[in-house]
């Protein structure tokens, strides 16, 4: 069985306290944009060559490392497909999010390293997404660890890679009309 490649942080140096604060604030602000439906602003936080991936998690034998499938994903997006997804939410007919879900992204356990080559920062964070729709349904939760590669773009960061390691093998949310 092939498992999805995770960005290795072995042997990398942790970032300074100051940089740690900067990347943490970056993730908080990203969550804020998504929770408030500012999807265009969110796209702005991604590089042109963004690789945005959420491999399928399986209940696999023995090691957790093998439980993320390679080549089988919930998301395997590039700039084009993410633009389409955002564009769709901007139309008047994206019923699944109209009325919109109320979402709250809890970001925690932020760890950051300086990438071996250059200025990139590798950030791992936990994400707990709370999603409430309508008035009669139970809310949904999606729990994941994200591994991001942040790239300097002038004075700010942009996300160049995101790998979402979801914890559930069977998602308990009706669809992924949400970004993680």
């Amino acid at each position: 069985m092939r498992s999805a490649p995770l960005t290795s942080t072995e042997g990398l140096a942790r970032v300074t306290l100051e940089l740690h604060h900067e990347v943490t604030m970056f993730l908080y602000e990203e969550a804020e944009a998504l929770d408030n439906g500012r999807f265009r602003a969110w796209l702005d936080l991604l590089t042109e060559d963004i690789a945005y991936r959420m491999p399928i998690r399986v209940t696999a034998a023995h090691t957790l490392a093998d439980s993320l499938l390679d080549g089988a994903d919930h998301f395997h997006e590039d700039r084009y497909s993410l633009e389409k997804r955002v564009h769709r939410f901007e139309t008047d007919h994206a019923w699944t999010e109209d009325p919109p879900s109320r979402t709250r992204r809890f970001v925690s356990n932020v760890r950051a390293w300086t990438a071996a080559d250059g200025d990139d920062v590798i950030v791992k964070s936990y994400l707990l997404l709370f999603r409430s729709r309508g008035d009669v349904r139970e809310p949904d939760w999606v729990s994941a660890e994200r591994t991001d590669v942040l790239r300097r773009a002038g004075t700010r960061f942009q996300i160049a890679r995101r790998l979402i390691a979801v914890d559930e093998s069977v998602l308990r949310t009706q669809n992924l009309a949400v970004f993680l």
Binding site: F75, A94, W95, T96, L171, Q174, N175, L176
Partner: peptide, 12 residues
């Protein structure tokens, strides 16, 4: 599929 743009509206 789980994230598909057709699918999203169907499931709703």
């Amino acid at each position: 599929g789980s994230s598909g743009m057709f699918e999203q509206d169907d499931v709703e």
